[in-house]
Computed example of a mutant assay.
Amino acid sequence: MTRRSVAQPVGTLITVATTGAETAKADAPGLPTTLDELVETARRCEQAGAALIHVHVRDDAHEPTLDLARLRETVAALRETTDLIVQLSTGGAVTDPYADRLRVLEADPDSCSLTCGTTNFGDDVFLNPYPFMRELYLAAREREIVPEFEIFDLGHLASLERLLGERGLPYGGRVHVDLVLGVPGALPGTTASLVAALAALPDAVTSWSATGIGRAHLPILAATLSAGGHLRVGMEDNLILERGRPVRHNVELVDRATTFATLMQRPPLTTDQARDLLQVRPRAA
């Protein structure tokens, strides 16, 4: 299915989701949970081809936190040491209250995640009622922060279409969605699910990426490139590089994504090209 609103890209936006809020440091020692580890990871992943970093922050006990001071410190450190587009998660952990998730925007990232509906998340429920989604959207636009619309279920695309119809386009005028496939209780990590989601994309969508959770990582990576999409990889979503071999560093996943994208004659976008794709604010001097 060809969508007039989604141009076939000449390159690939590679997003690295480094940490997440679910995996314990003890279970994945290579998970970057300190600021120094995150900065080192960001620099290596940028050199390997990533143009955007999706960030969750941990506290001194390596537990997920939405502490505003830590978020601000993290954004500043990443901007000082890399040219990456800095995207903060507004999802946090599934237990984080709405007020704390909204406050993430006060750290002034380039971009933020915006999940387009409530979904089952393993044994938990990730709550994203429409009024919260709308409030987060309007606050991001007021602060000139570009949202990335996270889609876990097909109904989320209908909610996104409703939001855009009622409230207009986001800051920058582009609409980028990320399809998250393989979370237990949400869209399965299959090519059929990817195709179904692409068929349901609102006409306003200008670009899209996808990620496969766990064992869906490689099949979704390959299917996404073949369908003209962009890639999200990282230890937030996948901890196994190959059978019997855990991921030791996020750069391994970025290296593999870069190899696949280059073989498909869609090499990684530079950070400047990615900013143009998403219409993110120019990098501050």
Rank of each mutant, 00 (worst) to 15 (best):
P29V: 13
L218P: 00
S111Y: 00
E150H: 14
T18D: 14
T2G: 13
A222Q: 13
Q8H: 13
D123Q: 10
P109V: 06
E150T: 04
A50H: 09
P147W: 02
A227R: 15
D59N: 15
E142Y: 03
A222D: 11
L269Y: 05
E37S: 13
L231A: 05
A69W: 06
L68H: 09
E166N: 04
H56W: 04
T270G: 14
E252F: 07
R141F: 02
P170H: 05
H156W: 00
V175H: 03
C112K: 01
P267W: 10
L241S: 04
R215P: 02
Y137I: 08
A17N: 12
P202R: 06
P170C: 09
Q265T: 12
L218D: 10
R4T: 14
V16I: 15
A274G: 09
R232G: 03
L31A: 11
R70D: 03
R44E: 15
T271V: 13
V251Y: 03
E252K: 06
L253R: 03
L263Q: 12
T115W: 00
T119I: 06
Q87T: 01
R266Q: 12
S193G: 10
T191Y: 07
D100M: 12
D237F: 01
L35R: 13
Q87C: 13
D83G: 14
V16T: 14
S111K: 02
R72K: 15
